[in-house]
Amino acid sequence: MTDRTENLVLVLPGLLLLALAFFVPIARMLVLSVEGEAGLTLTHFERFLSDPFYLSVLWRTVRLSLIITLICAAIGFPMAYIMAHVGPRLRLWLIVLVILPLMTSVVIRTFGWMVLLGRSGLIPEILRDLGLAERNFAIMRTEAAIVIGMVQVLLPFMTLSILGVITRIDRRLEEAARTMGCSFLGTLRTVVLPLAMPGIVAGSLLVFTLSASSFVTPNLLGGSRIQVLAASIYRSVTQTLDWPFAAAQAVILFAGVLLILIPYAQLTRRADG
């Protein structure tokens, strides 16, 4: 047995598993989306793209994902910067703070938001007591609820992705800028922010993808009337049982995700190398 054979034996089960149980299913989904009763057809796509309802679902998905991504970046960058600059003990606690929600099931986190945002929940109550909201004010079943819940679900991805880049920035660059008379905020803007950009962009692409493809949180916080693309796919699969149409919607999501993932792959490769 040569080294090559040994390594081939080691890697083969994984290659086979991923090929047969991961990529073949995705290929099957792609095929089903264009399969008609008589050969290939694009009717499922036509149906999606010509129906104003589905176009509004698509537009809402893109719009909400963009808002969620922007908020995550706005919170994630300062958070990652602070995490990289505090002492090791505090950093450990902050990392646990980010990882604990990340490792908790999305269903559970969404449940927490349902309690907080619900009709008699803590947040509407506080807003009402402060006189900031009217008596019949509700956050549940609005787009705002989806955004709040999704930002909490996805913020850890953004923070960790930026943290990975910020910790590798040479501290002496910041010190040099400061000794040359640049203010703290000026240094942050002209030195740290540009150097952290690969992490911010990579984190944003990841968060956007995850946001556009999630349905658990939007379903539970937005209700059935505010649908996003992934929720519509889930409904087509489990309720209307229209699998070819579900596949077509998944292909549209897939195409969008691929458009985003190509720059993501290039960015992360450059950041690693």
């Binding site: 994984g14 991923l18 149980a21 991961f22 073949v24 299913p25 995705i26 290929a27 099957r28 989904m29 792609l30 089903l32 990841l206 993808t209 995850l210 556009a212 493809s213 999630s214 349905f215 992934a230 796919i233 889930y234 699969v237 699998w243 579900a246 596949a247 998944a250 999501l253 897939f254 995700v257 993932l261 993501y264 792959a265």
Partner: peptide, 19 residues
Amino acid sequence: FLSPLVLPTIIYAIGMLML
């Protein structure tokens, strides 16, 4: 080997169910 990390699970889930 890392590709399932970035590909949304819902796309895989629907393919797996259909296959």
